[in-house]
Amino acid sequence: MFKHAQLESVKAWIGDPAQRALPLHARVQRALRQLILDGALDVGRPLPASRALARSLGVSR
């Protein structure tokens, strides 16, 4: 599962007013991609299940 800081980073990204023009799924995808590029998520490490991630982010699956 995500660490708290990683989850908060994704929440901040999807709530950023500068990103509001993008659809929600694109904001989530870009946030996850940025975590990988920043080295916050290890390459090859599985992501959380989509239902658990959606519940944590407060969005629908």
Rank of each mutant, 00 (worst) to 15 (best):
M1K: 05
F2T: 03
K3E: 14
K3R: 13
A5W: 09
Q6D: 15
L7W: 09
E8V: 12
S9W: 09
V10M: 02
V10G: 04
V10R: 01
K11C: 07
K11I: 13
A12H: 05
W13V: 11
W13E: 10
I14F: 11
I14H: 08
I14P: 00
G15H: 08
G15N: 14
G15W: 03
P17I: 08
P17T: 07
P17N: 04
A18W: 02
Q19W: 08
R20H: 15
R20Q: 15
R20M: 15
A21L: 07
A21N: 08
A21C: 05
L22M: 13
L22K: 12
L22Q: 11
L24P: 01
L24D: 11
H25F: 14
H25L: 12
H25R: 12
A26H: 12
A26R: 12
A26W: 11
V28R: 07
Q29C: 10
Q29G: 07
Q29I: 08
A31V: 10
L32N: 03
R33T: 15
R33I: 10
L35R: 01
L35I: 07
L35W: 06
I36A: 10
I36P: 00
I36Q: 04
D38F: 04
A40Q: 14
L41D: 00
L41Q: 08
L41Y: 02
D42Y: 01
G44D: 02
R45Y: 03
P46W: 01
P46M: 09
P46C: 08
P46H: 08
P46T: 11
P46N: 09
L47N: 01
P48F: 03
P48G: 08
A49F: 05
A49R: 09
S50G: 00
R51T: 12
R51M: 08
R51F: 09
R51V: 12
A52D: 13
A52K: 06
A52H: 03
A52M: 06
A52F: 04
A54E: 01
R55H: 11
S56C: 05
S56H: 03
L57E: 01
L57C: 04
G58Y: 03
V59K: 00
V59P: 00
V59I: 15
V59Y: 02
S60R: 04
S60C: 01
